[in-house]
């Protein structure tokens, strides 16, 4: 083995460790979206699939691995203003319509 080979291996191991750490940090992202209304689970969907769900009271959009409520028929619009969620155990709650969106 040449010196350059040893250096290469050390560099690659370092890159690998950094990549591993990056992946572990990112993997806290949730995988599924669970939507409940009136304490009943209505949907359990994959975060990776773009989709628009119309509950009648709220319209929820899954896009690019994130979930947000794009419209709601309630007055306060708190759930609509809520930022997009994607990390594990983050929630968007719409109290007037009893809708809970959880990332798992």
């Amino acid at each position: 083995m040449k010196k350059a080979d040893v250096k290469l291996i050390i560099c690659l191991v370092a890159v690998g460790i950094i990549a591993l750490m990056a992946v572990l940090l990112c993997s806290k992202n949730g995988k599924t979206v669970v939507i409940t209304q009136n304490n009943k689970q209505l949907y359990s969907l994959s975060l990776s699939e773009d989709k628009i769900i119309d509950l009648g009271t709220n319209i929820i959009e899954i896009k690019n691995g994130k979930v947000e409520v794009i419209s709601a028929n309630c007055k306060n619009q708190i759930c609509v203003k809520h930022k997009k969620i994607s990390k594990k155990s983050e929630q968007i709650v719409c109290i007037p319509n009893k809708v809970i969106i959880t990332v798992e």
Binding site: I9, L12, V13, V15, G16, I17, A19, L20, A22, V23, C26, S27, S48
Partner: peptide, 20 residues
């Protein structure tokens, strides 16, 4: 799709070991 990026660090390590 980008889910495969998760495997990248493992692929780097396997390249070092098997390549070596």
């Amino acid at each position: 799709g980008k889910g495969v990026l998760y495997y990248l660090p493992f692929l780097i390590f396997s390249a070092i070991i098997s390549g070596g």
